[in-house]
Design a protein around this nucleic acid. Sequence first.
DNA 1: GTCATTTGGTATAACGATACACTTACATTG
DNA 2: CAATGTAAGTGTATCGTTATACCAAATGAC
Lengths: 352, 352
Amino acid sequence: MPRKTITDVARLAKVSTSSVSNVLNDRSTRMRPETRDRIQQAINKLGYTPNLAARQLKTGYSPFIGLIVPSVADPFFGIFARLVEEAALARGFQVLLGNSDRDTGREQRYAEVLWRSGIRGIIFGSSLIHSTHLESLIDKGMHCIAFNRPHLGNDRYPIDSAGVDNVQATRLITKHLLALGHRRIGFISGPIDPVSRTDRLQGFRVTLQEAAIDPDEELVWDGPADNFGDTSAIELGRQGAHYLLSKAERPTAIIAINDMHAFGVYAGARDLGITIPAELSITGIDNITLADVVEPPLTTVQQPIRDVTRLAVERLISRLEESSIQPPVHVMLSPKLIVRTSTAHYQKNKTL
Amino acid sequence: MPRKTITDVARLAKVSTSSVSNVLNDRSTRMRPETRDRIQQAINKLGYTPNLAARQLKTGYSPFIGLIVPSVADPFFGIFARLVEEAALARGFQVLLGNSDRDTGREQRYAEVLWRSGIRGIIFGSSLIHSTHLESLIDKGMHCIAFNRPHLGNDRYPIDSAGVDNVQATRLITKHLLALGHRRIGFISGPIDPVSRTDRLQGFRVTLQEAAIDPDEELVWDGPADNFGDTSAIELGRQGAHYLLSKAERPTAIIAINDMHAFGVYAGARDLGITIPAELSITGIDNITLADVVEPPLTTVQQPIRDVTRLAVERLISRLEESSIQPPVHVMLSPKLIVRTSTAHYQKNKTL
DNA sequence: GTCATTTGGTATAACGATACACTTACATTG
DNA sequence: CAATGTAAGTGTATCGTTATACCAAATGAC
């Protein structure tokens, strides 16, 4: 069954292909209504749909944007991807999704494929600090928007960003824990590579210093040395919990880099027979749906990702439509502390 | 910066575009090694990459397959999508992902876009019982593979499938619960629309009947009547738990249609002060990573989705490459019961 | 009644890559 | 030495669409 083309439609409606094209592109001004209807009927009768490859070749325009996330298997990025798709569809764009596994090489290869496919805009769900692997593409004319990647001083390349204030996120959490009387606070993260993690760690340290507490580097755990993203977030949280909670003087609270890591800390604490929150307070970041369901419900920070994703998509589409080169734009929204019952007052005389 | 084309390369290497094309497509037989090298250098120097739209227009071939799932925000489908992508990449294909929200209209519109984009194969992550909305596309030549959708008698359209034996999944679970002494077993599901859910419910009923227990329809909850997929799985589980556990004679065990629903049941039971597993046994299906982390760890059924996704991708690519029309193929793998501690013996004299 | 304008279209050249038929120049064969 | 073969390419039509330029007929102005 050979595919129907615009020529088939033109023949059936007894007009030129130009007229069919005019109907397809809503340029009905130059046409009598009856001609228009005749063409439309021919289109319906044949079940004709335009060939996007041909259209793209001719116009140079692609109704697709790319989205590269570490992995949609991570619930946070699953939701993130879902919202990006929703925002893009609302603006008439489809999303092409790729998982990078936080691997620069994969990220680059994906971006390359997108470029070859005629896609001129990509949203990055998590941004590595270094973007040199994307420079040649940006030079060629690729537009990039990064989630959680405000302007870096050392960065020659203009990448827009939309994100949440990560320093603020851990500030909120750390203040909350300090207010509950905690002084020995652990910090669990995967490798501190993406910008968001650096910021979160910084927010934690700065807030401690403001409270005149010297951050104990022994209480910051950032994954096994040989790990390159192949261990899952939950497993990392569990390992980190085992490490921190086996110390002679163990922390009374643990800040996990995100909710999934926090769930791993739950499991790790359980392994060691430590109760939450009586003996250990735990916090996450993201406020994914599950945070409200686990036992005890997780104190965490909500990221306004619906707004962030919408802004990111709109920014990207504007970029695609504007002709001149504009300076990068950085949007940053505020996170919000969600207090549940995984955090409690530090009790000096608790039963160990 | 106008994009580089094959003509630019040809000019720089002082050859014809035909020769450049031959290099690009590994037809080096018709060329001296030195010419080949010269062309390759020109390609590198210009940073040339072929325009896939033009290539696709000419060859009719697209190195993409489509994947339509209910929502990647659901962790199960996040992992599913991840594995499909992995299998596809290994075979040289990219994946274009869409979320259908279990809405026939959205599913159809997505499939339509994929067709227009020149994509000739789609994997469906969850299959609605009716596929009439896809028939016209299949007629045109679209190849479809469904997850969990064995041949239906009433179905005129040849859709391949790869999946897990869902009847077997609930059989395993139900037998497990029966062995633990449970007789009043609840069943919680969203709308019984996809084939997989129908099968799971059937496995449950049949196994009860084999044990000479009359299935109590009052204990089967399939969502509020006005729900059309807009409520999250967790929330549905919670609502279902509230409903079933408020009955005068409440069930002693609940089978949730999948792990996410089961987590909702955890929350619902907690709301009512019912302890797991002492007062209520709970099971899920899928064995997502979180199943091992929640408290208590969830008894569930593991789906061999790595194998299923690989088989689905391979089947689809074979379809794309074969010229003649072959009868549909159905692959079904066996699930495996994973017993954890969310299930326990039914105790007659338990404290209510 | 002539000229200018509007209406309702059409012919054709691209877009970038590939396939096929074709051309040389040289080597081999009988 | 003519005939044949082969290595190493090249010329050009083509995929399905759209943009641009063009055109014929009808209408309007004076």
